[in-house]
Design a protein around this nucleic acid. Sequence first.
DNA 1: ATGACACGATTGTCGTGA
Length: 265
Amino acid sequence: MTLRIATWNVNSVRQRLGHLKDFTDSHQPDVLCLQETKVQNSEFPEHDIKSMGYKTVLFHGQKSYNGVAILCKKEIEINNQLIWCKKDDCRHLSITLKDGVQIHNFYVPSGGAIPDPEQNDKFAHKLQFIKEMTKWISDPAQKNEKLVIVGDLNVAPLVNDVWNHKKIQKSVGHTPLECDLMEKLREAGNLTDVGRHFVSADQPLYSWWGYRYKPSFVKNYGWRLDHILTTESLKSALQHFEIVKDTRGWEKPSDHVPSIVDLNL
DNA sequence: ATGACACGATTGTCGTGA
């Protein structure tokens, strides 16, 4: 059986319903994890999403900012949401499927503009969040499970995860400190970076193109901020990976595009 | 070189994203 999991920072679920339907129809994910839904639970467009074919729709949101959701066509055994950095700011949701595969959907804090935890609380929060994830995945109780960790991790860890490594090194999201923390997270869980499992590290690979500089997408000034990581027990199941770049060229797009993994279970 | 745009909550403009 093939399980297709996708992750997409949609930058407002209500603004992206048309794109969600088109992506669902064209790529048929079994599980679609969303970030930056930007809507409180009472306003979540549950009915619209269910009519796209998702049996189970889980959401954890707040007004204006953040928010995650998991859309699933399969039966779910367990669902859960964890608190990170002692704040319930809607950055995590997880499900466990009947076969024991756990899917964890994360929206890591972006970290503000100044890459200094002394001067910038948002950056301190981001560093703390990644450290907590590292501690969490270090626990053999997690590490030995069949885990798929997806989401907008807001770090582009490798040289070819940004369009200009030299220029961007001083920017939040690609500082040596953040890149190092991401590598430690990966090592702590003995995780496979699925994108780089399929696309060699010497090739550019991006999932985000900013809005502010208009021609960013045309010029391919991108960053790889969205990730899929799997634990060791799923490594042999990895079958296919894809970043669906097309969506960035659609009308009124999210600044992020979906990433997809197929697992052969 | 951090401005540029998009979004939500608001009614004028601000906080946020990265």
